[in-house]
């Protein structure tokens, strides 16, 4: 058997996951409507323009996190349903490359989700977004979804073979992604100018999101293989 470079494994896994998503349309037909419903339900529950504008950033990222659980479980269900994850192990494939491929695919799906959620927030919650805010928001979405992609893939792999994984995943993942929720919410509030926040205030939170992504990118690539194997 020829040796295969890490980048080839990453691209193969990435393309496979995105192709399965395009084919099955779980994101567009199930996750996006679910996330949209979360935004609408919050709008009904709070029913106050001032409050909604102030908490819009938090609601966008809460909806993202709720959707993350569904996307992560789906991402690993396609690998475990017919034993493909075992086949990947036996194939002697570099599992850290599998980790990066799956994490990038997950991040791409989350970016698509967040584009819709931000548009929903702009429409439903009537928040303002100027050019500086847009740059901050785009950076925030990229950094936060990258971090969520890494941590989601790591914990998805951890719970993939576990009994009761549907409930175990949110239980394990929610406390870990709390820093992303906080930092991304603050950065998004700064981008929206919620509560008189300045756009410049958001960049410090981008730093935290970057550190989070780096830690879970490195840690995840090291831990994913042993976790899957055990």
């Amino acid at each position: 058997m020829k040796s295969v470079t890490k980048s080839k494994v990453i691209s193969a896994v990435l393309l496979k996951d995105l192709r399965i998503e395009l084919r099955s349309r779980v994101l567009t037909n199930q996750v996006l409507p679910f996330a949209g419903l979360v935004l609408v339900m919050f709008a009904f529950a709070l029913d106050n323009d001032d409050v909604l504008q102030r908490v819009a950033g938090g609601l966008v990222w809460l909806a993202t996190l709720f959707s993350l659980f569904i996307i992560v479980q789906r991402s690993f269900a396609v690998d475990t349903t017919d034993g493909a994850l075992d086949s990947l192990r036996v194939a002697g494939v570099d599992l850290s490359a599998v980790f990066f491929g799956k994490a990038i695919a997950l991040a791409v799906k989350l970016v698509a989700l967040d584009v819709v959620l931000v548009c929903g927030a702009l429409l439903l919650y009537r928040v303002d977004l100027n050019l500086n805010g847009l740059v901050l928001l785009v950076t925030c979405v990229i950094c936060a979804t990258t971090g969520l992609g890494f941590v989601g893939t790591l914990y998805g792999g951890l719970t993939a073979g576990a009994k009761g994984r549907e409930t175990l995943l949110p239980l394990l993942l929610l406390p870990v992604v709390a820093p992303v929720l906080i930092a991304a919410t603050r950065a998004t509030e700064a981008a929206f100018g919620s509560g008189g926040a300045q756009t410049s205030e958001g960049w410090a939170w981008i730093g935290l999101l970057t550190v989070f992504a780096a830690v879970f990118g490195v840690g995840g690539s090291l831990a994913f293989g042993p976790l899957i194997d055990e």
């Binding site: 058997m1 020829k2 040796s3 295969v4 080839k8 494994v9 193969a12 496979k16 192709r19 399965i20 084919r23 099955s24 396609v78 690998d79 349903t81 017919d82 034993g83 493909a84 075992d86 086949s87 990947l88 036996v90 194939a91 002697g92 494939v93």
Partner: peptide, 29 residues
């Protein structure tokens, strides 16, 4: 160095036969 075919087939249900073959062949060169 080994190839294992267990009770499960290790295939992706939403991909075609050709796409499954392409994926696994890329992984093993």
């Amino acid at each position: 160095k080994v190839g294992l075919l267990g009770h499960a087939n290790g295939l992706f249900q939403d991909l075609t036969v050709a796409e499954n073959m392409s994926f696994w062949s890329r992984l093993v060169g």
